[in-house]
Design a protein around this nucleic acid. Structure first.
Length: 311
DNA sequence: GGGCCCGCAGGG
DNA sequence: CCCTGCGGGCCC
């Protein structure tokens, strides 16, 4: 039996999915020169010492965790994402799934700094529109911090970064489970409407929290994205491992190139009280490397016929 | 596994 | 200086 709440969510998702499809966003605007890789390249290498060498810096960062647990090196990698618990972290596989140009950049190697940073300096300015020089589409980082250091998406926490001419970048991290991701187009939800302070008797100091009020375009971040839809400036898009999508990386964060904000509107969000959210439709710009697809992701694509599910 | 609370970067 | 924010590490 499906709860009315779930029902509403399904309808919402279906609606937005239709919206994306009606805009022709379920596929690349132009056929990429190179065929999209439907499957991970067969030659999925087993982890070797050489691979371990490559991920060493990130592992080093988690040294402390290792100190307090006797478990192997793999499990300290998993610690980072509880949602991926039980899954094997195959960094070499991650690379084969990514587009040809993809490259892993983890700079949080830090020999012994408190936060493991040895070079906190940014080479490029994140407050720009378009690609960051030297950062190929498909570049992958272990953490938002690394991504920020490469100037692709500056905030460590926030999903939206922007200025007066619109957003510079957004991060898709699955914070709103009614967002739809078709890869070449997706819906995105604005910020705000969350109670980060708790109540008076139970004060909190959170960075994220459940939806507890309406969002609005007055909100500066939401306004930036609305401006983006008018200026049509390109927005850098980063997909994170928490995103529920076959286009999400299984671990870490990946730069997926430039998109434009095609539409901006308000609608009821998928939250208990039906608070309003700011919703956006993003469209991927042409002439970019094909998006990697996770074949292991089970697409619960059962939303097509609302009347089909009776039992 | 879930809850808590932190530093930090950015925009106004 | 104020505030926010789709992280993340730690403690339980």
């Amino acid at each position: 039996m499906v709860s009315p709440y779930e029902r509403q969510k399904e309808l919402q998702i279906a609606k937005n999915k239709e919206l994306l499809k009606s805009l022709g966003l379920e596929k690349p605007l132009f056929e990429p020169k190179e065929k999209p890789r439907k499957k991970a390249t067969p030659q999925k290498r087993k982890r070797t010492d050489e691979d371990t060498e490559n991920i060493e810096p990130s592992a080093r960062k988690l040294q402390r965790a290792e100190d307090s647990s006797e478990s192997g090196t793999l499990s300290i990698g998993l610690r980072r994402s509880s949602r991926n618990a039980g899954k094997a972290v195959d960094y070499s596989g991650e690379r084969t799934l990514s587009s040809p140009q993809s490259v892993i950049r983890n700079k949080t190697s830090g020999n012994d700094g408190p936060m493991g940073r040895e070079d906190g300096k940014r080479v490029h300015n994140p407050k720009t529109y378009g690609h960051i020089p030297g950062i190929a589409v498909g570049t992958w980082w272990l953490s938002r911090q690394d991504c920020s250091q490469d100037a692709v998406h500056a905030p460590w926490v926030g999903g939206i970064s922007g200025g007066r001419q619109g957003a510079y970048s957004v991060a898709l991290s699955g914070g709103y489970d009614d967002d739809v991701d078709l890869g070449y187009g997706f819906t995105y939800t604005g910020s705000g409407g969350r109670d980060l302070h708790g109540t008076k008797d139970k004060p909190k100091n959170l960075r994220t929290a459940p939806q507890s009020s309406d969002q609005s375009f007055e909100h500066s971040f939401n306004q930036m994205l609305k401006v983006s839809s008018e200026t049509r400036n390109p927005v850098r898009v980063v997909r994170g491992f928490k995103l529920q999508s076959k286009y999400a990386p299984s671990e870490g964060y990946r730069y997926d190139g430039l998109y434009v904000v095609e539409k901006a509107f308000m609608e009821k969000g998928n939250n208990a009280k039906g608070y309003l959210v700011c919703r956006y439709v993003f469209k991927r710009l042409p002439d970019q490397p094909p998006l990697p697809v996770r074949e292991d992701y089970e697409d619960l694509d059962s939303v097509e016929e609302p009347s089909a599910e009776e039992d």
